[in-house]
Every structure is written in C-alpha cells, then in structure tokens.
Simulated assay, not measured.
Amino acid sequence: MLDLRVFENRELAQRILMAITREAEMIGREVRLMHVCGTHEDTVTRSGIRSLLPENIKIVSGPGCPVCITPVEDIVKMQEIMRKAREEGEEIILTTFGDMYKIPTPRGSFSDLKGEGYDIRIVYSIYDTYKLARENPDKLVVHFSPGFETTTAPAAGMLEAVAAEGMENFKIYSVHRLTPPAVEALVKQGTNFDGLIDPGHVSTIIGVKGWEYITTEYGVPQVIAGFEPVDFLMGVLLLLRMIRKGETRIENEYTRAVRYEGNLKAQELIGRFFEVRDAKWRALGVIPTSGLELREEWKELDIRNIYRVGVPKLPDLEKGCLCGAVLRGLALPTDCKLFGKECTPRHPVGPCMVSYEGTCSIFYKYGALF
C-alpha cells in the first residue's frame, strides 16, 4: 500500500524546491502558472508555497470554485420557486451545500430565505437529499446542485437511483459546470499563463484525455496534480522543465488516482442524465459548452419544469469587489481594497469570500502564510 506521508515529506519538498530554483534560473523570465482548483489553492496558501518559490515563478488561481461562479440569477430563481410553491400551497424542503447557503446576491442568500421561515437544509452530499426525500414521501425535496465534474458524477448516480425507484418527490436544480471549457475561455480571452496545473479530482472523472485538447489546440503545457504539497511542487517542477525545453504536452503526476481514460462509468452516467449547454459563470459571463442541464427525457426531475418563475438580470458583484479578476487569475485577494476590511467570511461582499474553496476565503483563513 502506498504510504501517503511521502507527499508531505519536508526533505523531499526541499529537494524539489531546489530543482525548481535551478529551472527558474535557467528560464530567466517571469513564469505564470495557473491552477483551477480550490483544494490546490488551499494547499498552496496553507503550505506557504508562494513564499517558497523563486521570485520569477508566480502561481495564480483561476475559476476553481464551483459555488463562487454559480450565477446570481439561479440562486434568486430557486428562492422565487420556493415562494411560488408556498403561494400554491406546497412547502419545499430545499437542500444545498454549506458554502452555497450564504452566497450573497442582490436579493439575499439562502440563509436569508431560511430566516423568512422556509425549510432549507445543509447537506454533505446529494445522497443526504435522497434519504431526506425517502423519509418525507409527502414533501417535495429539491437539491440545489452545484459542482464541477467531481460532484456531477455522484449527482448522476443518485438520479439513476431515483429514476429506478420511481421517486416523484425528488427534484434537482442543476448548476453543474465543466472545467476544461472555462480554461479554454480564459485562453481565448487572453488571460496570460505559461502552464496549467489541473485538478486531480476532476481528472479522476474526465481522465488525462479530457484535458488533452487544451494542449493540442492552444499550446498550453499541463500537469495533472494531486493535493499534497509535494504533489503541487512536482506539478510546478514538471511544468518548468517543459517550459525551459520548449515542450508542449500534458503529464499526469497524480497517477495513483487518475487514468488516461478517466472513470468511464461516471462519464456514462453523466451523459445519460445531462446534456452540455452554454452556461453563465458568475463574473465570467457565458462560456460555451460549459454547463450541464438535465436531458429532455428527465425533465420531470428538474424543479424548473414544475414551477416556472422569471428573474430579471442582476449584477454579479458589488461595486469594488475584485472576485471576477481573482477568478480570471488577474488579481490576488490582497489586491482588493475590500479584502479583510468590508469583506470577511462573517460579512462577505463577494462569493470568493464565502466558499471554503474560494480564493479570498482561503487567503483570509491562512493570513500571512500566502
């Protein structure tokens, strides 16, 4: 059995850092490496990795927080569905994840809605929602379902169970998103980075194969990396070696979990229940082929087909909030004048401060370590 303690080994990390320093010196210019993963950001910031790297090696965070990029309009629309259901004599039990619960919008959060007397519950997984629906057959139970590929796979598996059992009181509101199209959009928009560190958990689902076109079509070197400090440092080292040699390919550092083809069963389930559509990302706009909606044959599982409500266009962010720039890798949280002052986890101004995967929240949590 693999001893995972090796990926936290201080001496090994120091040897990798020495190799990174040598590569950085040979490259001799600034190198910007982007990741698109809240867990990677947690590893980088908690471990103080930015402070350990040579000055010409910059780590920037992209749109790695699925809760942070969930559109304002979807959160508000779910709130309006709750209100409409009550007007028509039905009380919905709404479930969602803890970090989604307090995401701010111009019309309040789910937490605010609970304060109005609506039944909103925090769950750890969509399976908890399924159990709740089975325990309350006379109630309509809805899961507000965010997440990238890693979360979409269990959602599809749960929908399979619901369909097989013929459960009529279980619905979802899908705000699932796909990660590679967001990276592609950043490249097309001109976001400047020299290499990409891909999230290991997403890659367990889509495999190395799911990222390949980013390299072949756009010339971006990539490394799929795990989540321990040594994993991330190895990702940096592998990218720097490619950049120094002028090579453009994708490497898999996270071989203990990621296969080339990914998880074929998960892919099949996602494809069975969801179809790809263009989708809005908060503060990033509409990104082609980046969203997942339930297929027409499963429309009865979508709460939006039960209660239809309209929501006007709403501003994504409060004035002065730099969450959009943080999500694009154009700014760090400390560049924002609101960070740590008007904007804190207790009183968040923007979504990047609410979610535990949000870069602003992570920076605030670990303070001077970044």
Results as ranks from 00 to 15, higher is better:
T289G: 09
L314Q: 07
P315F: 00
L317W: 02
K337I: 14
L292W: 11
V276Y: 03
G320S: 06
D302W: 01
L338E: 11
P288A: 04
R295M: 13
V286S: 09
V286D: 10
A283D: 09
L322I: 06
R277T: 14
I303M: 05
L327W: 02
F274M: 11
K313L: 05
Y307F: 14
F274C: 10
F273N: 09
F273C: 10
E293G: 01
D335W: 04
R277I: 14
K319P: 06
P333A: 01
R277W: 04
P312T: 03
L338N: 04
C321Q: 05
D278P: 13
L330I: 10
C343E: 11
E297A: 02
G285W: 08
I287P: 13
C343T: 06
A325T: 00
L330Q: 11
E293I: 12
K337N: 12
F273I: 10
R304I: 02
L332T: 10
W298L: 14
P315Y: 01
G329W: 06
N305F: 01
I303G: 01
C321V: 05
S290A: 15
F273Y: 15
V311E: 06
G310P: 00
W298C: 09
D335T: 01
S290F: 07
R295H: 04
W281R: 09
K280W: 02
Y307V: 03
R295D: 13
R272D: 08
C321I: 09
W281G: 08
R295C: 13
L322M: 14
V286L: 10
V326D: 00
L294P: 13
Y307W: 14
V326I: 15
E297Q: 12
L317R: 06
L301I: 01
